[in-house]
């Protein structure tokens, strides 16, 4: 028990040091811009399909599930407005971030972990490259930029899923649906929900890189790092979401 607490405190300290090192290296001269763009392609573009499918299904399912409740209150006409607020404000950012934590987080954790145990990181260092800047700074920056873009994309797809959901049992024209969606959404819904996804992306990137970069105990450690990257970054998404909601509430944007 005491040992576990001690190890947790040590790990928090190590993450804090990693976090500080990230910002130090980020502002140091010589940015690996090409590698960062390559990572944006791999981490962002390659996740589009998965994010699109989940966004579409979420939009469709939420609409189908919400309809009976609204019918009970005779408020079926509010369906587009209600689902758009739920999707854009909360469901799509969190679900997309969790999908990214699973796909991107495990990928980074396993990739950096295997590079660590097979001495590829050392090889990079002796090749005149700062491995932290080349591997960590580029990946964290790429994830921080890509998660918000993926969320915006998933928002659009999920609202399209919502349109189909409304039309499964009812009938609403394309124009009317989008008019109702746009009327219900305000900047107070969109800006906080997009802003928090930068933090989701940063948390996924930094935690996954930390877990991968500090892998120990050979190939067994690689599996552990990939797993821990997903678990811890998913948990962090929820914690950050809670904090974001509190801040939004304090600023009276809800």
């Amino acid at each position: 028990m005491w040992e576990n607490i001690k190890n947790s405190v040590i790990e928090i300290g190590e993450i804090a040091r990693f976090f500080i090192r990230f910002f130090r290296e980020f502002f140091r001269k010589g940015y690996e811009f090409r590698e960062m763009l390559r990572q944006c392609f791999f981490l962002g573009y390659k996740s589009l399909g998965l994010v699109a499918i989940t966004g579409f299904i979420i939009g469709l399912v939420i609409t189908i599930q919400s309809r009976p409740t609204l019918i009970k209150f005779g408020a079926e006409a509010w369906l587009p407005g209600m689902i758009s607020v739920s999707l854009v404000r909360e469901i799509v950012p969190v679900i997309t971030a969790l999908i990214c934590a699973g796909k991107i987080g495990s990928g980074i954790g396993a990739e950096l972990g295997s590079m660590k145990v097979t001495e590829q990181i050392d090889a990079m260092e002796v090749s005149g490259t700062n491995p932290f800047k080349y591997l960590v700074v580029t990946r964290v920056t790429a994830v921080t930029l890509m998660v918000p873009l993926l969320v915006v994309f998933a928002d659009a797809i999920s609202l399209y899923g919502g349109y189909l959901g409304v039309n499964l049992r009812g009938a609403i024209s394309w124009d009317l649906y989008w008019t109702q969606v746009m009327e219900s959404l305000s900047f107070g819904d969109i800006i906080p929900s997009i802003s928090k996804t930068f933090f989701f992306g940063f948390a996924i990137g930094i935690i996954s890189c930390y877990k991968g970069y500090t892998t120990q105990h050979g190939t067994e450690g690689v599996g552990r790092s990939a797993n821990a990257a997903v678990v811890v970054s998913s948990l962090m998404v929820f914690v950050l979401d809670l904090v974001a909601v509190q801040i939004t509430d304090l600023l009276q944007l809800i």
Binding site: T118, E119, Q120, D122, A123, M124, G128
Partner: peptide
């Protein structure tokens, strides 16, 4: 430095592996 595990970059082709130290140094 020749590493015990070879330390070839898995995500790069043989050409890119060999180009890496040249492009850096």
């Amino acid at each position: 430095f020749l590493f015990q595990s070879n330390a070839l970059y898995d995500s790069m082709t043989v050409r890119e592996n060999l180009e890496f130290p040249l492009r850096r140094h």
